[in-house]
Amino acid sequence: MKWKYYVLIALTALFAYACTRNAITGRNQLSLVSESELQTTAKTQYRQFLAQHNVVSASNNKDAEMVKRVGSRIASAITEYYRSKGQGDALKGYKWEFNLVQSNEINAWCMPGGKVVVYTGILPVTQNEAALAIVLGHEITHAVAGHGRERMSQGLLAAGIQQLGQGLLGNSKALNIFNAVYAPTAQIGVLLPNSRNQELEADHYGLIFAALAGYNPEEAIPFWQRMQSLAGGSSTPVFLSDHPAEADRIQHLQEWMPEALKYYKPVKSR
């Protein structure tokens, strides 16, 4: 049985070695996969997803144009925020893309490298630009805060994968874990379950990023109240799957609101 003891020691050492402190959130995260590898894989998966779905053209659709406009403002705000904290390198390789996809799903997601999709099904719930900014701020935070990388690392560790060097994502098991975390090709990837810590971080910094982009963070409360109403129906929207209770989420948002409002400088919405 000694081998189990040594394996436990090795895994503990690996866990400790691979934990990094997120300079923005201050939380320690397991990081067994490089950001550059994730971005490369995400770019491929994003292209495949767009090719297989009905992307709404921003040149002749006001909703698609709004998604790109709001997304671009938030991306600029996040970039400036990270630079102001001396963490501009954390966004290295980010080439932002924002696309609206025709789907009844109430959903949105962001992959590593800033690859974002909003589904048309969520727009009747957001109802305005500020609420859309809340959604995009939340989703983009998952990406820039390394939540997907953290969850994938946890999956790799749980699977006992030893080959964690160059070309990791060429490993079929590692690629399967990537798809389980992001999974747009499986048409379920889109906001997969995250830990409570990750969700709270996404809500918290999503408020700040939306405010920095010039959108009223107070719109988060009625938006999540509308989502709460949907959750009380016969089926739960994908956007809410395995997420914290909406009443708890709203309570936290109210606690963070004074901080977020300090960053808020309004911009004129169209």
Rank of each mutant, 00 (worst) to 15 (best):
Q45M: 06
G88F: 06
Q52D: 11
A75T: 06
R47F: 09
L100N: 02
K62S: 11
F49C: 07
G88D: 09
Y46G: 03
K43G: 08
R47M: 11
N60G: 09
R47N: 04
R73A: 15
E105K: 14
L50K: 05
S59R: 14
N60F: 05
N54P: 11
D89F: 02
A64P: 06
Q48E: 12
L91S: 09
T79R: 15
K92R: 13
K95A: 06
D89S: 08
L91Q: 09
Q45N: 07
I106Q: 08
Y81W: 02
T40N: 09
R69G: 13
S76N: 10
E97T: 15
N107G: 03
A64S: 10
S59Y: 10
S72F: 04
S57L: 15
V67T: 00
N54V: 03
A90E: 12
E65G: 14
R73D: 08
V67A: 00
Y94K: 10
Q52M: 14
Y94I: 10
L91T: 10
F98G: 03
G71T: 03
R73P: 08
T41M: 15
N61F: 03
S59P: 07
L50I: 05
G86M: 15
A58S: 13
Y81A: 03
T40I: 05
G71I: 01
K85P: 08
Y82M: 04
S84G: 13
N107R: 06
F49P: 14
K43P: 04
N54Q: 15
Q45G: 12
A77S: 03
F98H: 02
T79K: 13
S103G: 02
Y81G: 01
S72I: 00
M66S: 09
F98L: 00
A58R: 07
K95H: 10
S76H: 11
A77G: 04
I74A: 07
Y82V: 13
N104V: 03
G86Y: 06
Q52T: 06
I78Q: 02
D63Y: 06
S84I: 05
N60A: 13
F98W: 00
G86L: 04
W96H: 14
V67F: 02
N107D: 07
A90V: 09
R69F: 13
N60T: 12
F98Y: 01
G71H: 01
I106P: 07
